[in-house]
Design a binder for these strands. Structure first.
Length: 688
DNA sequence: CTGACTCGTGTTTTT
DNA sequence: CACGAGTCAG
């Protein structure tokens, strides 16, 4: 092995990089150089003669894959021997399970009855389709009952599929109140599945299911298997059962297989991810080598001391504490703030202080549990003209006007795409759900030929727009029409509809569409663009715009989930109050609380040098019709006094004078002579 | 059947 | 408040 690959690695990392073709599980704690290890391993394989196009690198985001391959490429450039064309790392198959599955399904999907022009539907489309089949199969039978909403139906369905569990068990465990609807749910799930097959529309889960099905096909399974000599899977703790089955299908005996993960960072069980995949790895692949990485390079000792204490509270855990390579450091700070305003001020002031001391904004991040938690901060950043980019939350491509526009292309790409068709058709006046459905059925019976729509007689108020609509679709459908022209034509048609639909902010929405038009040149085809927008949507409109109009320095705001795998010099975790961390919605079962704790652990371990955790002690409810004008909260239960005393500097930010109310939580305790526990009890006892 | 209306309910994380 | 589900007049 060339010397360049080893010199920055510790013995454990080096062993992982050099390890041969037997199944390998690397249990990599937070900040232990997992990405470095994987990049080196890919580079090492290529340097030793592996063909990049026979390497499969499955990661959690496309960004992670690109980053690793980038690093591998740089490492290879340092090797004397110049790589030949076939050795080029860009040929590695890298990406998420969903993206790689899509690529394979385009090639081999016909063996499982899938035409190559299938379209992929996102969560909102799934809900629309679920609604459609619900009214079709159950009609008015559900009226008057509290039948689960479409979103809940999709959630239940998805959990069944992803965990490969019986509907009955899922209902009993997660939705006990809905057990009585089991027969109806089973019925609409059947119809939903049937519908997707007929229409060549796949949801996220299908991409995995179909891939898994292909692996079981005697010929095609073998064909796919023999495409790859090496399979590397990152973030293995966040894979679900089907993904594990796919991996098993790719390398039944584990030959050439490397998986990397950390059970303490498993935060996607709501998506049916299971740590069992890591725990059972040795059983699934006998003879597997297990290598732990325990040297933490990222955080200072002071920060690591705190994160180790926090993770030790896990009810169930399988690993020892990490030890710090970086000694010393500044103790993390825990700040009780008067309210959201005080918290905002505290964070912004500190951000500016670090900035003035020479730390670029890019090296700092503000993390939060839920996307809405950053709203107040965003307002303040805008007011003070501090550039920022927000990750997580609603995606650009999920905005109604963007979905409207894309539905024109989707219906042409796949005339069976019901969610797209319904969306598009109901834009027209006089056409509601019923007519739209009938028209889609008509179109499908005609084999997707839009001429059938020409001979349809629209109702009076639809007359003006109907024939232009059909003409537009035919125009988009013309062979060899450039993608850009297709989009431009659709925007032209859609413009008046948009202006009428959103009289207030039509202009900004329109400029979003112009932006869409200008990035369309980056895509090889309509098919690729549509798939990309569903599988890997731009995380922020800034990212989408390619170059932010702010300079090249900005503050990162991110949900904790979206911060996975990233690191910054300074990290702020805001809204660390009980009810947010852990979220009120996930405090039912111990497993749920454990997952919230792992989430908090992931957030804390993103920090390299400075870590600030803030908690507003009071929340105002501007528009509450149910309850008080404000509520008093407690800091997260994951930072009990002992940990705060041992590992944190505690401070307060109370500088938002509010004459209305001076009683804070501490005062209440003092006045009433209660302990915290007693106070909580008192808050809840009335509920019974 | 569509679209404007009223009424009730509830609030996370994402490929 | 915001959104979905149900109601009812054309």
């Amino acid at each position: 092995m060339p010397e360049t690959f080893g010199k920055d690695l510790n013995p454990a990392q080096r062993e992982a990089v050099e390890y041969g073709e037997g199944p390998l599980l690397v249990v990599a704690g937070a900040g232990t150089g997992k990405t470095t290890m994987l990049a080196h391993r890919v580079a090492r394989l290529v340097a030793d003669g592996a063909r990049p196009d026979r390497i499969l690198l499955l990661t959690f985001t496309r960004r992670a894959a690109m980053e690793m391959l980038q690093r591998a490429r740089r490492l290879l450039e340092n090797v004397k021997r110049a790589p030949t064309e076939s050795q080029h790392v860009t040929n590695v198959w890298g990406g998420t399970f969903h993206a790689v599955g899509t690529r394979l399904l385009r090639i081999y999907g016909s063996c499982v009855g899938l035409p190559p022009n299938f379209t992929i539907i996102d969560r909102a489309d799934q809900e629309d389709l679920m609604n459609l089949v619900r009214t079709e199969t159950l009609g008015k039978k559900t009226e008057g009952k509290r039948f689960p909403k479409k979103g809940t139906c999709v959630a239940i369905y998805s959990r069944c599929v992803n965990s490969q569990a019986k509907l009955y068990d899922i209902l009993a465990k997660y939705y006990p109140k809905l057990e009585e609807y089991l027969p109806e749910l089973a019925q609409i799930f059947d119809a939903y599945t049937q519908r997707k097959i007929e229409n060549a529309t796949l949801d996220y889960d299908d991409l995995l299911l179909y891939w898994s099905a292909m692996m079981r096909h005697p010929e095609i399974g073998e064909k796919i298997r023999s495409r790859f000599d090496w399979v590397l899977v990152d973030e293995y703790q966040d894979t679900n059962r089907i993904q594990a089955e796919i991996v098993k299908g790719l390398t039944p005996d584990g030959k050439g297989l490397t998986v990397v993960g950390d059970d303490a960072q498993s935060i996607y069980s709501f998506r049916a991810a299971t740590v069992r995949n890591i725990l059972d790895f040795p059983k699934t692949f006998p003879g597997a080598k297990i290598l732990p990485l325990e040297e933490n390079y990222r955080s200072t000792a002071a920060i690591l001391k705190a994160t180790n204490r926090v993770v030790a509270q896990l009810h169930e855990r399988y690993r020892k504490d990490l030890f710090a390579v970086r000694k010393g450091g500044v103790r993390p700070t825990f700040c009780r703030c008067r309210d959201d305003d005080a918290q905002t001020r505290y964070v912004v002031d500190l951000v500016l202080e670090h900035y003035e001391n020479g730390m670029p904004l890019k090296e700092m991040a503000v993390l939060f549990r839920s996307s809405s938690h950053s709203l107040r901060l965003e307002t303040e950043l805008a007011r003070r003209r501090i550039p920022y980019v927000k990750y997580g939350g609603l995606k650009f491509t999920e905005a109604a006007h963007v979905k409207d526009l894309l539905s024109f292309l989707r219906i042409v790409e796949n005339p069976g795409d019901f969610p797209a068709g319904l969306r598009l058709l109901t834009l027209l006046p006089g056409i509601g759900p019923k007519k739209a459905r009938d028209l889609m059925v008509l179109l499908q019976q005609a084999g997707g030929n839009f001429n059938v729509w020409s001979s349809w007689t629209p109702p009076k108020n639809a007359q003006e727009l109907w024939f232009p609509t059909v003409a537009l679709l035919k125009q988009i459908n013309e062979p060899d029409r450039p993608l850009k022209e297709q989009l431009a034509a659709a925007i032209e048609f859609y413009r008046p509809i948009l202006t009428e639909k959103w009289p207030l902010d039509g202009d900004s929405r329109l400029s979003d569409l112009e932006q869409l038009l200008s990035v369309s040149g980056n895509f090889k085809s309509r098919r690729e663009m549509l798939a990309d927008f569903v599988l890997d949507p731009p995380a922020s409109s800034e990212e989408f715009a390619d170059k932010p109009d702010i300079d090249d320095d900005w503050l990162n705001l991110s949900t904790i989930h979206s911060a996975k795998g990233l690191e910054w010099k300074s990290v702020f975790i805001i809204h660390a109050s009980d009810g947010n961390i852990p979220s009120d919605m996930s405090t039912g079962r111990q497993e749920e609380i454990d997952e919230e704790l792992r989430l908090f652990y992931v957030a804390m371990t993103r920090a390299k040098d400075y870590l600030y955790i803030t908690c507003p002690m009071k929340y105002y409810h501007a528009n509450t019709y149910w309850g008080d004008a404000f509520s008093t909260v407690l800091p997260t239960r994951f930072l009990p006094t002992e940990i705060l005393n041992d590992c944190f500097e505690s401070t307060r930010c109370w500088d938002a004078p509010n004459p209305d109310d001076d009683r804070d939580f501490r005062n209440i305790l003092e006045e009433e002579g209660l302990t915290t526990e007693e106070w909580i009890k008192k808050q809840t006892e009335d509920l019974w």
